[in-house]
């Protein structure tokens, strides 16, 4: 039995197709350990070697990685939810009900999307907390901390724009309370200091631009949908790329120097 198994394994691993994809064999050697990382487009984000403490959970808390994982989960579940959700005031709430009660695994996907989003907010805070406590923002990593703050803010904005989409009482009022602050933007809001003096009115100020109307209504739903599904995720992805690239360029995981 074992012999048959080995034969099959042998014949798969030795084929030209397999080799053309993975390019190296699996014997545990120094060389293969390096190739495993170098020959893999996903893993080569990593260096081939890192300081010992960089692999310890008690040092990294793994929070950056968890944030990225949860981002991927929300992206995948979010795209799946888009198959059934229509961002218009007549349909949005009905589609939520449909997703929850009729679509197989609809409720599960929605739950996973929401809880992963909550988890991402927590993980990104903890990541910032860890980076601060290890002083990892100090030279030469100053700029990557700035990129991290941008990512943190974008995560919160993503969560916030997603909050409106179910179009229920919870979402519309949370977003009303949130966006009403924009009325009071100094200079650019119609109730902010020096806003009225500059000619700001409910229908031409910064809040109007955000909502597409003078109150949270159907245009707001559409705007938030576009922000939530296209603009902010792309923005986040671009800065994630910069963030990861800078981690490597700035010398990898921080350590006592």
């Amino acid at each position: 039995m074992q012999a048959v198994f080995d034969r099959i394994k042998e014949s798969v691993l030795k084929t030209q197709v397999w080799k053309s994809i993975f390019r190296h064999d699996y014997e545990d050697s120094q060389r293969n350990r390096l190739l495993q990382v170098l020959d893999n487009i996903w893993l080569h984000l990593h260096p081939t070697k890192l300081p010992r403490h960089g692999a310890y959970l008690r040092f990294t808390w793994c929070m950056g990685g968890i944030t990225f994982l949860l981002f991927l989960v929300t992206a995948v579940t979010g795209v799946l939810l888009m198959f059934y959700y229509r961002p218009t005031a007549e349909y949005a709430f009905a589609d939520m009900k449909y997703l929850q009660f009729d679509v197989p695994f609809g409720m599960f996907l929605r739950n996973m999307h929401r809880w992963a989003a909550h988890g991402m907010v927590i993980a990104v805070w903890l990541h910032m907390f860890r980076v601060f406590l290890t002083g990892s923002y100090k030279p030469p990593r100053e700029f990557n901390w700035v990129v991290g703050v941008i990512l943190l803010t974008t995560t919160l904005l993503l969560s916030f724009t997603g909050y409106l989409l179910p179009w229920d009482q919870l979402s519309i009022w949370a977003v009303t309370v949130g966006t009403n602050m924009a009325r009071a933007t100094p200079l650019l809001g119609h109730e902010g200091p020096f806003g009225p003096e500059l000619g700001m009115k409910p229908d031409n100020d910064v809040r109007f631009m955000l909502l597409g109307g003078t109150q949270v209504g159907p245009p707001t739903l559409l705007r938030f949908y576009v922000l939530h599904c296209i603009f902010l995720p792309l923005f986040l992805a671009v800065f994630i790329a910069v963030h990861f690239w800078r981690v490597r360029k700035d010398g990898g995981i921080s350590g006592p120097l």
Partner: peptide, 11 residues
């Protein structure tokens, strides 16, 4: 920027 401010509001 101007594109974000429609002329007609359905309110």
């Amino acid at each position: 920027l101007r594109y974000m401010f429609p002329r007609v509001l359905f309110e």
